[in-house]
Design a protein around this nucleic acid. Structure first.
Lengths: 337, 337
DNA sequence: ACTTGGCACTCGGGAACACAGAGTGCTAGA
DNA sequence: TCTAGCACTCTGTGTTCCCGAGTGCCAAGT
């Protein structure tokens, strides 16, 4: 159905349209890409491509524009991810290496990605679920209040103030801390609930109310912050582009954690580190935008996802290259710390 | 020069223009606000107001539009802050009361303010400088690494991983922690540098390199995070408005902490809790936008600033009311926790 | 069977134009 | 000092017209 030349025509249409933002006609096509055929032939191929739904024309007597289906074919079969230049890679590396803590890593990553792709970058905070406990700290604040601090191997720190049901002496707090650390140190977060289940029984009866309170807060922290936090940057890059959905809708989605989460997509089972591309109407909620995303994290231990969001008309090869590269570097950084 | 009626005309022009977004003419003015005078008289007054630079007309034979100077006069003398409805106040209270930690308070505040004013809300994190140390924790991670956690009385937690120059035993770490807490507990952050200055000398000589490293990181934490972090929300509200500066410039400013900081403005010496209004060209960097901001924090202890950013054409009385109310509630919340 | 040149056709978008309506400034009168 | 009337000046809108890019189709060429 689609011979090689038709595919070449489609590729040329996508490339031209992405770079000029104007419907591309048969004549210009035949000239700019050396297709060795006349405009008339190109027209025939275009008619076929339109018949199949890969391209469309905004109005009669205008050039052709790729459809979502056209972009999809382009991404899947006609393009290859464009690697970054050596200079860009060095820049990424040094920029990310300067991060002082996890917050800083995420902030720098999202800005870097936005600047690199000139689009909106989105980064999900490393999920707690797969990380492990490095340390649990309980700090007495007042007689009836303690601060619970949970430190994970990814450098993440979660803290909560806990109101105790009764006064508990500091020495008992210290004991609890020791017990907690002894049983939890190094274990996966998902294993925490079982591990602490019988803890109250192993402690003096009079401490049980306080321990129960502390543990419930601890468990709450684990589930609540599960994979909730997502940040974005580069909203200014939206100013130029025109979205079918409307700029407002896009900006609203960016501030809505839940929507953003859906957009980034779940890690696709087998190969979470693969690039996911969602084009236009393939997106939940936000039709008219495209998303290039991937998981990041060290090797088999995928922590979370990051990606960029932009208009359907985007330079996919370059964007995919940037996303992949940034994901790799940030994974390295996280693995090292 | 400007009698009462002229002021009334100016007020009417501002109010009408803000609500309709169209240049307002003499006829409509005389009708809608019962000024008891004819359009011709209003015209004369308008001519005088224009002469003085309070209003201007986009083109000959269009209505009048307030200038920055006109808005300024309106805000200073012709309007009064509009208090929120009881329902709104209750909504604020319950919404903010649900916050679990400082991050959550700030996030909720900024969203609330954005929703309430239908503009972009900006909130600066409570400044460390004026808060006090509640606890310092040093957690051994590996032989050569510790995590330094600083907890302040505002519930803020700063953590840093510190690489030690040499192996230090846990018991010595514990000792250092005890000493640090003993000398710093409850003291203002600004006093920390002096208090720790002679600390290395009071400890065994072999610990000094490690202690020096830890202390330098601690001090760095204090200055670096000084008043750096600012968050915003409600960018979607920009979609409708039209800025002379261009939407792109506004979005860029929002992601630039330094610019944002300048925009929020320094606390004006004597009465930091007073509302600051910057109109159009009075703004550094971002002409064509207005900012309504105020300090927040309990009473004399102002912690930071918050406010909203919007087009010059905004409903100042309502916006000012919302900003003031939110600042008060968030101050309460912070004082209580 | 595919490619090519020719040709008529179709729209979109810009230029030219007219026109209604809102709003103004000015002057003369109450 | 205010008001009424009037001539004037714009903007925005609707209409018309026309150019040109681009197409689809057909017949001829390879």
């Amino acid at each position: 159905m689609l011979d090689d030349r038709k595919l070449a025509v489609l590729r040329a249409i996508v490339e031209d349209y992405v770079s000029t933002n104007e419907p591309v006609g048969s004549k210009a096509l035949a000239e700019r890409h050396n297709l060795k055929v006349s405009p008339a032939t190109v027209r025939n191929d275009m008619a076929a491509l339109e018949e199949e739904g890969y391209i469309t024309q905004p109005h009669t007597s205008a050039g052709r524009v790729p459809t979502d289906k056209g972009y999809r074919l382009f991404v899947d079969r006609l393009s290859q991810v464009k690697p970054l230049s050596a200079a860009e890679r060095r820049a990424i590396e040094t920029f990310l290496a300067g991060a002082v803590d996890l917050d800083d890593v995420v902030t720098r990553t999202v800005r870097l990605l936005a600047q690199l792709t000139r689009q909106v970058a989105v980064v999900q905070y490393p999920t707690l679920t797969r990380s492990t406990v490095r340390h649990v700290e309980i700090v007495p604040l007042t007689e009836r209040r303690v601060m619970l601090v949970l430190i994970t191997n990814t450098g993440r720190v979660e803290q909560r103030v806990v109101e105790l049901p009764e006064v508990v002496e500091d020495t008992r707090i210290a004991h609890l801390r020791a017990v907690l650390n002894a049983s939890l140190d190094g274990c996966g977060l998902s294993a925490v609930p079982e591990l602490v289940a019988d803890l109250p029984e192993r402690l003096p009866a009079e401490d049980r109310p306080a321990v129960a309170t502390i543990l419930s807060v601890l468990l709450e922290t684990l589930v609540e912050r599960h994979d909730e936090k997502i940040v974005f940057a580069g909203a200014a890059n939206l100013a130029g582009a025109d979205f079918t959905t409307g700029l407002r809708a896009v900006l609203e989605a960016l501030e809505e954690q839940v929507v953003l989460m859906r957009l980034l997509g779940e890690t696709s089972g087998d190969t979470p580190s693969a690039l996911t591309v969602r084009i236009g109407s393939e997106n939940p909620y936000l039709h008219g935008t495209s998303i290039v995303a991937t998981g990041y994290g060290s090797g088999d231990n995928q922590l979370a996802r990051l990606g960029v969001l932009g208009p359907t008309r985007m330079d996919y090869p370059v964007t995919m290259g940037a996303v992949r590269a940034v994901a790799r570097y940030v994974s390295q950084i996280l693995a090292a710390s």
